[in-house]
Design a protein around this nucleic acid. Structure first.
Lengths: 131, 131
DNA sequence: ATAAAGTCCGTACCATAGTACGGAGTCAAG
DNA sequence: CTTGACTCCGTACTATGGTACGGACTTTAT
């Protein structure tokens, strides 16, 4: 006799919090089983797999909204899914570029601080200050 | 006779919204002038410079909280400010590393999609799906 | 004087992904 | 039966940096 899958069990088996599952249900990315006339809701085993998919996709940088779209595509749409992955990869490239630019600016300011002998003036403050 | 600096004028001259200034005041990073017995609040001209400082520091990746700390250090503490900039630069490096790792993973998955002749199986979906 | 623009103030909302809580009801084990 | 664990449900909160709104009051320009 297999244990019924209550929300706590699903949470434990999929490695998330009960609250997180409730949130996913409200978000619509997880289906909430009907409340039985007696006892607690019983979740299908597939729910666990679905949650694991969600967490792994999150680790790839997809938002919940994007993950919902991936799940809708499902298997058999490799082209579409690859396209989504390419878009995400491009977005991440963009972020990296931004950060690299930022880092360069900061490095420049830090170097200016190191080489500026006048403690009365801070090149960073000067840069940030109006004028 | 110089125009009094009401909040709208300050907003216009510093390039932010009135609502943003109100938010900064609530946040505590901008001082809210006392309400005169008659008429609107009059802002000191220094408020404009301070807001410009804030926006420029934001562009360097500092949070409002961090900016408040920078502003408190003020000029004359180049060492401390440089230290903050170094910490921010290090944090950004960390972010870049994370993103690069993510990009590599995605690239690997995308490549697998391109070289997989079986449309029935999507390497991305396989990777995300529970094992 | 009038109307439009501006300010004030308190409150609520946005996006994202959760997290927490209180009270009520249910289930399971001793 | 009792107690503790669990579920349910509705509501609120977190972090960050804003943005919006409604009603009341003030200022400005015609």
């Amino acid at each position: 006799m297999q244990k019924s899958l209550t929300i706590g069990r699903v949470a434990e088996l999929s490695g998330v919090n009960v609250e997180t599952i409730r949130y996913y249900q409200r978000f619509g990315i997880i289906t909430e089983p009907k409340k039985p006339l007696e006892g607690y809701r019983i979740y299908p085993e597939a729910t666990i797999n679905r949650i694991i998919f969600i967490k792994r996709a999150q680790q790839l940088g997809f938002s919940l909204k994007e993950i919902a779209e991936l799940l809708e595509l499902g298997d058999g749409n490799c082209g579409d899914i690859m396209k989504r992955a390419e878009e995400k990869r491009d977005y991440i490239n963009h972020q990296i570029d931004d950060l690299l630019r930022l880092k360069t600016t900061l490095d420049t300011l830090i170097t200016a601080c190191r080489t500026d002998d006048e403690a009365a003036h801070c090149p960073i403050v000067d840069t940030l200050t109006a004028k």
